[in-house]
Design a protein around this nucleic acid. Structure first.
Lengths: 340, 340
DNA sequence: GTTGGCACTCAGCCGTTATGAGTGCCAGGC
DNA sequence: GCCTGGCACTCATAACGGCTGAGTGCCAAC
């Protein structure tokens, strides 16, 4: 049904429409691309493409614009993720390298992403439960107060003070620290609770109750974590490019950006790790954002995704560039989290 | 020059224009307000008000709209801060009361403010340097590592690990903790450094160098603080009310919201504590926001302002309501910070 | 399967006209 | 001296109509 030339025509339409923001006609198409055929032939191809639902006409005497289905085909078959120039790669690396802490990494990432894609960028904070334990510190603050410090692979630091029912001897505290670290370092936080469940058994009867208490506090700290619902947003000023149809694209997006829960739905699941996920128009899980697309991917230390980041823009966006930028930033942030 | 009735006319024009968003003519003015005179008389008054620069005509055959100068007079002389109903007050109190930590307080405040005013709300995080010390904790983590924990009146917790050049005895650490707390609790952080400057003198010669080191780390923690450059933003979707002139008011505002430094300039100095500050149109310290107004005030524990919060909206905004909301939220947040 | 030709459609762009909201001014009244 | 009704005037906006040109669909010829 769709031979190579028709696909070429579709690709040309998408590229032209994305760059000009205007419906593209048969004449200008053969002028700007080397299709090797006449406008009349292109018109015939366009008629077929329209029949199949890949393109449409805003009105009778206008050119064609891609439909969601057209963009989908373009993204799936007609383009591959661009590779950035080494200069661009280096710029990304150095910009992210300067970050001083986790918060800074996230903020730099979101700015970078917004600038590279000229879209609205969203970066989810690394989830505590999905990251791994780097170190647990147990310090005595006074005879019956203990300070727990939990340091994760993503650089987050959580601390809790425990009011002990009865004092613990210094050597018991040392033993507890050693046992805790042996049990959970390198483990995911989500598994930490089960990993330490049998620790109290190894302590003297007198201390068992207190150790159980300490472990309960640790488990609670992990359970309390709501950082996975936190996101950073950048490049909102790029919304001006979305066009003047305020109510139909900008207002809903502004509203969505306020609701972090909605945003997280947009970014999608972390699971789809290695590849970049693209949701186009109606595929976006939010009805009022039918004219927007989301390009997102997971990221995290190593190649293990602990959170997602991506960009939101009009369906008529430059997918190859966005996909390349999202992919590149995600990989570099992952590297930073691994090293830092 | 401006008798009472002319001021009444100005007030009526401002109120009508704010609620209808349309230039207001002499006829509708006498219909909607009890001015007790005919449209012709109102027209004469309007001519004077225009000559004095308080109102203007978008074009010849249109009604009048207030100028920045007109709004200024309205805010200064023609209105006082509304008092909220007890029901509203209670709603604010309970909504803020539910906050679990400082971050939550800030986020709830910004949402509340956005909802009450239907504008874009901005809340600056409490500045570390302006808040006071509630408690300093000094804990030994190992023989040559010390953990410093600083808890402030705004609920912020800062911690630093100090690598000691030589070990400190437990009783010396206890003494250090006692001395530190005696010196700085209740003091502002900005003064903490000078307060502890002579502490090393009170210790034995052997420990003096190490104590100096600990104090240097504490001072550095305060100096490093950049939390005063942090702000929370909410209600951006309310920008849709700003009108359709995208480039002239929404785009610049979106850009300003991305630049926290600019935002802080907008909010203004913390100094003007007790009263609500209103900046109208050209008074706003950012040229591209000439059609925008800012209503802001300081807030903090007790009546001491440690940061600012406020709303940004079009010059044609409901000043009495905004001022009332900003004032009320600031006072309740201050109360929360005092108690919590 | 491709191409040039041609009739057809229709959004967008003036130019014109009609409407009416709102004003400024003036002469008369309290 | 201030207020008021009346009236002529201005001008943004809407409505109408004709024109233009980009772009299409179709068809006959290659």
């Amino acid at each position: 049904m769709l031979d190579d030339r028709k696909l070429d025509v579709l690709r040309a339409i998408v590229e032209d429409y994305v760059s000009t923001q205007e419906p593209v006609g048969s004449k200008v198409l053969v002028e700007r691309h080397q299709l090797g055929v006449s406008p009349a032939t292109v018109r015939n191809d366009m008629a077929v493409l329209e029949e199949e639902g890949f393109i449409t006409q805003p009105h009778t005497s206008a050119g064609r614009i891609p439909t969601d289905k057209g963009y989908r085909l373009f993204v799936d078959k007609l383009t591959s993720i661009k590779t950035l120039t080494t200069a661009e790669k280096r710029a990304i690396a150095t910009f992210l390298q300067g970050a001083v802490d986790l918060d800074d990494v996230v903020h730099r990432s979101v700015r970078l992403l917004a600038q590279l894609t000229q879209q609205v960028a969203i970066v989810q904070y690394p989830t505590l439960a999905r990251s791994t334990v780097r170190h647990v510190e147990v310090v005595s603050m006074s005879s019956n107060r203990l300070l727990l410090v939990l340091i994760t692979s993503t650089g987050r630091v959580e601390q809790r003070v425990v009011e002990l029912r009865r004092p613990l001897a210094d050597d018991v505290i040392g033993e507890l620290r050693a046992q805790l670290n042996a049990a959970v370092v390198g483990q995911r936080l989500s598994e930490a609770a089960t990993r330490v469940a049998d620790l109290p058994e190894r302590f003297h009867l007198d201390d068992k109750a207190v150790v159980t208490q300490v472990i309960a506090v640790l488990a609670q700290a992990v359970a309390d974590d709501r950082s996975d619902e936190k996101v950073a947003i950048g490049g909102t000023a790029n919304m001006v490019r979305f066009g003047e149809d305020f109510d139909h694209s900008i207002k809903p997006l502004l509203e969505a950006l306020e609701e972090h829960v909605v945003l997280l739905k947009l970014l999608g699941d972390v699971s789809s790790s290695s590849l970049v996920t693209v949701r186009i128009g109606h595929e976006v899980p939010h009805e009022s954002l039918a004219t927007t697309s989301v390009v997102a991917t997971g990221y995290g230390p190593g190649d293990r995704a602990v959170a997602t980041l991506g960009v939101v823009g009009p369906t008529r966006m430059d997918y190859p560039t966005s996909m390349a930028a999202v992919n590149a930033v995600a990989r570099y942030v992952g590297r930073i989290l691994t090293d830092g």
